[in-house]
Amino acid sequence: MHWVKGHADNAYNNRCDVLATAAADSGLPGISGKEGITYIRQFWNDVYVVVITGNDDEAVIYDCIERGANGYMLKPFRLDDLLGHIEIIRNGGTLLSPQVAAKLFKQIRKQSSAIEIGDYGLTTREKQVVEELLKGMTYKEIGNVLAISSTTGFSVDSGECGVVATLTDITAKKMQEAQLLELIKKEKELNELKSAFVNMVSHELRTPLTVISSSAEILELMLKSGKGYNDVSIYTQQIIDEVEKMTAFMQDLLMISKIESGKININPTTENIVAFVKSVISRGFAPYKDGRFTKLDIKRKEHNATIDITLLEHCLQNILANAFKYSVGKSSPVVRIGFSKNYFTISVVDDGIGIPKQDTQKLFTSFFRASNTGNISGTGIGLMVAKY
């Protein structure tokens, strides 16, 4: 670049042309390639200047082009390629490495998207359309993005032809369509729930009623034949057990009805928590029908607390019943009561089949049962009741 400056000064003094094509590196010591371009442009506007460098910094690229460079080539490349590229420039072309061209296009897009739309009497919606047009989008694409319909046509006025575009805001229409689709979806889900409910109720009532009916017929036959209490007690117990199942099932349905209608009434009273839990355990879980007894584990000093005894009893019964039902052949479930100064916790621990990870999101959904329950009977409403 010292050579360029010297010859530029000499050309100024003697008014002569000494250059046809100049190659400059942006990072050489002394006068930089960028400064060299400036010197050349002061004296030779028709000289072809090509920057040859390993520097791909965007700021350097733009600076060299603004100073008047005709091309910007990144190293490495072959000499034969350079000679061919210089010939392109001498014939009026522009020479850019592919990487440099990509950076320029990227910058141009940024500048286009950053253009601010003046007021010009445009509404907010109209400005949005213009902004999308500046991004290079078609009318159809704009319509999809902004929820507007578009039509285009040709208009002739005083012998001139042009394109007329009509844009209609259909946001409200799109919102109505989305709401309608959502209603249809909910209606479909409701119908599916109704079908599931009818099937579930039919199954849950049919089984105990069948047991009750058959047990009553056997009892009648045994009593006619003069059988004593010890002989018929097994069948009377079966009837009692099935009636209890039906009663619990109907209580769950009634509770769900109250939950969904928002008619749950809270009646808090101060109770002895340990005595309350023992009372629940004694009614059906000590022992359970398979002979297992519930284990009770109390942590820290116990104290009374305020609870709705009816709702909490319903909740604990459901969870304990599940703990036994889904852990057949395993160790007995454990009820743990933990006390602290201002609150208490009740936990039920069992070694049952567990809950698959993919089912946990729907755990408290009405009539939903985990995918691993198999043939184990159940309604899919117990945990929903317990949650509320």
Rank of each mutant, 00 (worst) to 15 (best):
P333G: 03
A321V: 01
S347P: 03
I309S: 14
Y48W: 01
L193H: 08
T94C: 02
V211K: 11
G84S: 15
L312R: 05
G378K: 05
S26Q: 02
A165E: 11
F339K: 01
K194F: 15
F367H: 05
E187I: 08
S113M: 06
F344Q: 07
Y48G: 03
G30W: 08
G84D: 14
F285N: 07
M250C: 09
F249P: 00
Q99L: 12
I240P: 00
R109T: 02
A248F: 13
L296P: 01
F285V: 02
G374E: 09
L181R: 07
L219F: 12
I40R: 00
V163E: 06
L183S: 11
Y62D: 04
C16Y: 15
I273K: 02
I381A: 05
K387G: 05
A8R: 05
E192V: 11
F293E: 11
K289Q: 13
F154W: 00
Q361L: 14
L254P: 01
R41I: 00
W3C: 06
G121M: 12
G71V: 00
T94N: 10
V18I: 10
D81M: 09
F344A: 09
F43K: 12
Y326N: 06
D252T: 04
T306P: 02
V349A: 01
S214V: 14
N45H: 08
L223Q: 10
S158E: 13
G352F: 08
D241G: 07
A172M: 00
N375M: 09
T247L: 08
I353F: 03
Q361R: 11
F339H: 04
G68L: 12
K278H: 07
S347Y: 05
V4W: 01
S233G: 10
I40G: 01
D231A: 01
E66M: 07
I89C: 03
Y62W: 10
I86W: 04
A370P: 09
D359Y: 12
T151L: 03
E242Y: 01
E187Y: 07
S202P: 02
S279L: 08
E192M: 07
G228Q: 05
D351I: 08
L183I: 04
I353V: 06
Y120V: 05
R90S: 12
T53D: 13
S332R: 00
A102R: 03
H85E: 14
T379W: 06
G36D: 02
I142Y: 03
D80L: 09
P29D: 12
T38N: 12
K174H: 02
E116T: 15
G291L: 12
S366I: 15
A386D: 12
K245F: 14
V334A: 04
F276S: 10
K289R: 13
